[in-house]
Amino acid sequence: MPDDEKRKPIIHVIPAKRHFKRMRVALYCRVSTQMERQLHSLSAQMDFEKEDILENPAWEYVGTYTDIKSGRTISSRPGFQSLLADCEAGKIDMIYTKSISRFGRNCVDFLVTLRRLKELKIDVFFYNERTHLLSQAGELLLTLHAGVAQAESENKSENIKWGLRRSTMDPDSPAFSRRCYGYDRNEEEGLILNIAEARIVLKIFDWYEQGWSIVRIKKELEALKVPSPTGKKKWPVKTIENILTNEKYTGTSVYGETESADFPSTKRKARDPFEVHRSLNHHLPIIHERRFKRIQKLKAKRSNIEVDEHGNKLRKSTHYSSKRAVTRAKKTTKPEN
């Protein structure tokens, strides 16, 4: 075969493969309470939304973050805080959540968070609203939706308060039969004594009247291996404080001494004394009323804090010493020769 008739080589150009990077997607789910119905809702949220992420070939599932908390504030939700920390660390490209109300019900917190995520170029997809944060009109639409969600929460909160106030006008209202340490709740009889716990309540009052400090009472309960009202080994000081000031131990059930502050605050504020409802002789007492009042006077005397005429809390120049109090008590009870 002549040279000019030799077959020329054919060169095939193979294009370089494009590196396809999948978007790292985190799932966020939230319910407000531990109620069985809400926990079932949380499980359903997680199953459906996780499956939706896994079915998308452009997405890479990186984990689920959950909270069983109110949506009023961000700071009280550990799952959400962990999610934001991972966003700051560059581990997430997009957050997938069911709706704006799951993300939060406080409009200000909601918008501050969205803007920070936007700065980090992290998208948020809200399934119910079918809206992406990084879309052209995303922030505007989400702002409108968030305002509506907060207004709905405010209305719901006011309706619940109104309903409870109405119900407590009846002395037999279930609101007066909320269980506390020392009592069990019986559907037919209301509050009934829990004998073992009632004995501990009596001991706490006895020790305090003998001059013991709350810290000493705490240490004694823990040394005796008495479980706390929540079943734990440690007794919080606040728990003992609450027992010593709970009027329910006199047989009177009180409702409405405090109420939630205006939305979205999670703090509680004292109510007008004329709006507080009492159901007298509601259940068997553990402590006599006269003794309870005597303990309240002792607490006020021992407290290192006093309130001035303007309602400001001030620290006293002197402080209570349980050791001195016990020594004085022993001297006054010492028999004469």
Rank of each mutant, 00 (worst) to 15 (best):
M1P: 12
P2C: 05
E5F: 09
K6P: 01
P9N: 07
I10D: 11
I11M: 07
H19E: 15
S32A: 09
M35V: 10
R37D: 14
Q38F: 03
H40E: 15
L42S: 04
S43Q: 08
A44T: 11
Q45D: 02
F48M: 05
N56F: 14
E60Y: 10
T64A: 12
Y65K: 02
S76G: 11
C87R: 00
A89P: 12
F103W: 07
G104C: 03
G104S: 04
G104H: 01
G104F: 05
D109K: 00
D109R: 00
L111Y: 03
L117Q: 01
E119L: 08
I122S: 04
V124M: 02
N128Q: 09
N128A: 09
E129K: 05
R130N: 14
T131K: 12
Q136C: 10
A137D: 13
E139G: 07
T143R: 09
T143A: 12
L144I: 06
H145F: 15
H145D: 15
Q150A: 07
A151V: 14
S153T: 10
K156L: 15
I160L: 09
G163Y: 08
L164K: 15
R165V: 03
T168W: 03
M169L: 05
P171W: 01
D172M: 13
P174T: 04
D184A: 08
R185G: 05
R185C: 07
R185T: 10
N186Y: 05
E187H: 09
E187A: 11
E189K: 15
I192F: 05
I192D: 05
L193Q: 01
N194C: 11
A196F: 07
A196Q: 13
E197T: 09
L202T: 06
K203H: 05
F205D: 00
W207N: 14
E209D: 14
Q210I: 08
R216K: 10
I217E: 00
K218N: 05
L221T: 03
L221H: 02
L224D: 13
K225L: 09
S228L: 02
P229V: 08
T230M: 11
K234I: 09
L244D: 01
E247Q: 10
V254D: 00
E257F: 13
A261N: 09
D262Y: 09
F263K: 03
P264F: 05
S265R: 06
S265P: 09
R271Q: 15
P273Y: 06
E275I: 10
N281G: 06
L284M: 13
L284G: 08
I287G: 00
E289V: 10
R291V: 14
R291Y: 07
N304I: 12
I305H: 02
E306T: 13
K313R: 13
K316Q: 08
T332P: 01
